[in-house]
């Protein structure tokens, strides 16, 4: 198996762990500012991995990763602000 395939498999495992953690936080009733921050941090890590490795924007001209990762962080920031204000 080549290095790229191994990396993709590793990222898949990380994404599954992140999903399981998010699900577990929901199932165990985690709520409030700290829980929201934790869940959004997991989403940020998962999203960045998908953008950089699955979408293959790692090593591409800075414009494209900046646009897509910037979108991810902006949306997550808006969600965090909205939840913290509404909690």
């Amino acid at each position: 198996m080549n290095m790229n395939a191994r990396r993709l498999d590793f990222i898949f495992a990380v994404l599954l762990i992140g999903t399981a953690l998010t699900w577990w936080m929901g199932e165990t009733g985690h709520a409030g500012p700290a829980a929201v921050l934790g869940i959004l941090a997991i989403a940020a890590v998962k999203g960045t991995l998908i953008i950089r490795d699955f979408m293959a924007l790692r090593g591409i001209n800075v414009f494209w990763p900046t646009m897509v990762i910037g979108w991810l962080l902006l949306v997550l920031g808006i969600i965090m602000g909205g939840y913290w204000k509404g909690l």
Binding site: V36, I39, L40, A43, L72, L76
Partner: peptide, 12 residues
């Protein structure tokens, strides 16, 4: 969906 799932199903 990575954003949609926690937003709609989990975060409170």
């Amino acid at each position: 969906w990575i954003i949609l799932f926690p937003l709609v199903y989990v975060m409170r």
